[in-house]
Amino acid sequence: MRPDEERDYVAYVEARLPALRRLACYLCKDEHRADDLVQNTITRLYVRWNRAREARDLHRYVDKMLLRTFLNEQRLGWWTRVWLTDGPRDLPGPGDDPETRVVVRAALARVPPRQRAVLVLRFLCDLPVTEVAELLGCSAGNVKSQSARGLARLRELLDVGEFTKEEVGGHESR
C-alpha cells in the first residue's frame, strides 16, 4: 500500500472506530471480545483497502466485513480469535443502569449469533429489513423470520411477556 493510501486508511479507521466498536459491542458479550472483533476487521480491511475504497458505500462495506468476521468467528470457534488482553471480560461499562444493561447484554449474548446480528442491526442500528438482508447476504423473509425467532429467544431469556402484535408489527412492516 502506498503511503498516501495508508494515511487514507488510518484516517478512515480512526474516524470510524467509535461506530465500529459500538456495533461490535452490541454483537459481543463483552467489550474485550468486541475489541478483538474490531481489531480483526480493521486488519482485514487493511489487506483489502484498495478494493474497499472503491466501494460506493464504504461504511456499509466495512460494516459487512465486521459482521462476516463476527459470524465466521462464531462458526470457526475460539481459536481463530485474536485475544488482546487478559483482563476481566464481563465488567459493566458506564451508564445510568449498569445492572439492567448487564442482564440484557448477557441475554442477547445467548441468542444464536445470526439471530443476534439481525436483532442488533434492526433494533439497535435501526436498519430496514432490506438493508439487513443485504448486509447478511440473505433474503428479507429470512431476516424477518430470524427476527421473530431472536425476539422470542430474547424474551424467553429475559422472562418478559410476549410482544403484542402492534409492538412487533411496526418493525415487521419494514
Binding site: 467509535p18 478483538d36 481489531q39 488482553t85 447484554r105 436483532l119 433494533f123 410482544f163 418493525h171
Partner: peptide, 28 residues
C-alpha cells in the same frame, strides 16, 4: 424492560462502548 423490541434493547443503545478500548490501528 417490556416494550417494543427497540425498547427492550434500549439499555445497550444508551451505554455504548467505553472510551479508548484495546483496538490499535498501528497494530492493524
Amino acid at each position: 424492560r417490556c416494550g417494543s423490541p427497540s425498547e427492550l434493547l434500549q439499555p445497550l443503545r444508551d451505554a455504548g462502548p467505553g472510551a479508548g478500548g484495546g483496538v490499535d490501528v498501528g497494530r492493524a
